[in-house]
Amino acid sequence: MSCAEDINLLAVVVDTNPAAWAAAASDPDRPLDFVKIIEQLLIFINAHLSLKFDNELAIIASHADQSQFLYPLPPADPLDAADDEPSKPANVYKQFFDVDRAVVSKLKELVDDKRTKSAEHENRSMVAGSLALALSYINRIKRANENNSVQSRILILSISPDLPSQYIPTMNCIFAAQKVSTRIDVCRFSGRKYGGESVFLPQASHITAGIYLDIPEPSNLLQYLLYTFLPEPSMRKTLLLPHKDQVDFRAACFCHKNVVDVGYVCSVCLSIFCSLSKKCPTCQTVFPAPK
């Protein structure tokens, strides 16, 4: 049982795109309350921390125009050094308290931020940037614990529609994750007015051997999280967990960022295009004229 001694690192990417959550809250069939979702997520995160003393954690918000760490915060952050820092109540485990406080205050900050107000009408989420942040954090933890093996995984809570303009960075992150054997689990909300079919995220979990789950009943989110996403990677050989059989492997073209079923592929650099051109815009290879 060597895996029992490993350090478990969970990086959670939370989609905080305000437009999507606003739409979700007013959905007639399955209304979603952002606060309730975050509450359930925090219990799940505490459960992860409670499994083992040295379990590691990172939480990243994927906002409409930026990606930000919610936890851990840099030590120089004024929030930590503040004199009026509320002391920990005696009924709460110290680690849980730190995480919960950091996440809640950071989320408030993010929502109140003036800069994002202008971007609010844009229904998008910077998943690629958040994945990159998560991967770099995972790499840092691995470097810091060279003597112990670190088992890492990423969990994406996603609600926004795919952003074809981010196809290339997203795929790059997915392949980077595959290379460092980090699984990407995806927990996806979809209703009539939000979510919708995602093309990139099922590929992400398929390529990295993660789990993709559409949440049919968001009010029971916590149970889905505890059942499906809590088992650490080493447990996945033991426990029967859901997996998605059919994966949509469609790609976005490099020229107009459209999702295409059939397209043209450059024989030299494998770039994908939706329309035929004489020269590859990526690697400048001149194609022979079609006969």
């Binding site: 505490n46 005696a90 009924n91």
Partner: peptide, 11 residues
Amino acid sequence: ALVGGGDHVSF
């Protein structure tokens, strides 16, 4: 323990 509820001062 998970939600920090109750009144037990056990931490």
